[in-house]
Amino acid sequence: MNKKGSYYRYLNRFGWFCVAPAMVFYSLFMLYPILSSLYYVTRRWRGMSNTFVGLGNFARMARDQIFQQAIGHNFAFMFVQIPLMVFLALILAVILNQGIRRMRGTFRVIFFLPCVTSLVAYSVLFRILLQNNGLLNNIMLNAHLLAEPIGWLNDPFWAKVTIILALTWRWTGYNMVFFLVGLQSIDTEIYEAAEVDGASKRRQFFRITLPLLLPVILFSAVTSTNGTMQLFDEPNILTNQGNPANATMTAALYIYRQAFVVNSDFGYATAMSYVVVLISGIFAFVQMRLLGDRGEK
């Protein structure tokens, strides 16, 4: 009995030994930042010195229209881009899964390829392609699709479209692969049975494929929402620091600029990051509930 107890203690100690290094890193670079942010959030920096302002940073946020717009842009990108991307990814996945017999592998690789680019690299590429006198405008002008060049980067509306198009290019193939995995796990016997019952292809898609794929779709929506809430590289590089006139400013970019570029107000930046955490948390909670209801194995 005693011997067995000491053996379990030994195993338990080994368990701690395994997780200890990770815990050290976690404490330093996750727990400590979270705890110290509680101090920063109550302070306001002016130059090198800072003073206690209590909840003053949050009051300032309520008056800060650029920050509110930035959050609005995050939502706008989320609600337009994610459905568009999920729709396209779904079409491609269904086609690759049952629409063609040849060259499946080739097309899967081709559609996935945009994901190998770093966010910085593809932002640079798109910024060059979308100049006023750049390639896309040239092609469309020559094909007489446009009468005058579109300001992809310097019109407030089109700059948002640019971000959406760029995100869609970068991430559609990624989500398609998720959906393909999901589609392949659906038992083909279900379709055979539906075929026998005389269900049309369209009916099969809406009654079988879509419901069974819903957990995967939700999962990719969760990941994409999280990513869109953190949007930073694209507005900073592709549309040049959230331009034109803050039309593509996002929360993360605005926070970064308040802390490092425009001001060095770490207190205000921390307070704004709390709002981003809160929003991400709410989204995660809602989506987790949705996934929990449907995604149990």
């Binding site: 976690y26 330093l28 670079f29 996750m30 400590y32 930042p33 979270i34 110290s36 942010s37 920063y40 999280n226 809430m229 953190q230 930073f232 929360a251 993360a252 926070i255 970064y256 802390a259 770490f266 930046a269 921390t270 990051s273 709390y274 981003v276 955490v277 991400s280 948390g281 995660a284």
Partner: peptide
Amino acid sequence: ILLLTLIIPQIAVVIPMFKL
């Protein structure tokens, strides 16, 4: 707890970390 903090966006962590 680890999984719970997975939802915290990077932008919220990097500012205190910069100070560190």
